[in-house]
Amino acid sequence: MLSTVEVVQVFLARLAAQDASGIARLCAPTVEWEAPDPNGVRWALGSRTRREVESHFLTLFATFDLEQLAVRQVVVDGGDAAVFGRTRWRVFATGEQVTAQFAAVLSVHLGEIEQYWHMPDTLAVATATGAARTGA
């Protein structure tokens, strides 16, 4: 069974590799979820299945190409981990580049992610995708 630190390390490696199915396999059968949709406008709250987690990341990776993932700090307290960093994405539809600060909180139990909160700079994402102008 992986420790909280190991789960976070594997999660970040799979995120950098844009491995949606690998990320989903790190999750418990049901994950408490709080994260924006890929264009950064609407927030998805509540429980998600592994399949829904995979679908979220597949949509994210079909919308954006991750060019850089820079982790500034990881704080672990038992089964909880907070990750702070910066990402740089390229929007496939427009070619526009998005740099966004983020914080993510993962709660790990028995080697699986049971809670995922992702708090990116949604204004930067919505502006780059055009969602801020259209009100999508």
Rank of each mutant, 00 (worst) to 15 (best):
Q73N: 15
D77P: 04
R48V: 03
T63R: 11
F61P: 05
E52M: 07
F61D: 04
L58C: 08
D65Y: 00
R48L: 09
T63M: 13
T49Y: 06
S47D: 14
L45A: 12
F61I: 01
T63I: 00
V75W: 07
T49R: 07
R50M: 02
E67I: 00
G46L: 08
G46I: 04
D65H: 10
V71H: 00
R48C: 02
T49F: 05
V74M: 07
D80W: 01
S47T: 12
G79N: 06
V75L: 14
A62G: 15
R50T: 07
Q68D: 11
D80Y: 02
T63S: 05
S55P: 00
V76K: 05
Q73H: 13
L66S: 09
Q68Y: 01
F57T: 08
S47Q: 10
V74E: 10
E67K: 15
V53R: 07
L58G: 00
D80K: 10
D65I: 00
R50G: 04
T49W: 06
E52L: 12
T49Q: 06
D65K: 11
D77E: 15
R72Q: 15
F64Y: 12
G46A: 10
E52T: 09
A81P: 08
V76P: 02
L45E: 05
F61L: 03
Q68F: 00
L45Q: 14
F64T: 00
V53D: 04
Q73A: 13
D65R: 13
R50D: 01
L69A: 06
E54M: 03
F64Q: 02
A70T: 11
V76L: 11
D80F: 02
L69Y: 05
R72E: 15
V71E: 00
V74A: 12
R50W: 09
A70G: 03
H56F: 14
R51T: 11
F61A: 03
F57E: 13
Q68C: 06
D80M: 11
V74C: 08
D65G: 06
L66K: 08
T63P: 06
G79R: 07
A70Y: 04
F57G: 11
R72T: 15
A62S: 15
E67N: 13
L58P: 00
E67T: 04
E52F: 11
D80C: 12
T59H: 14
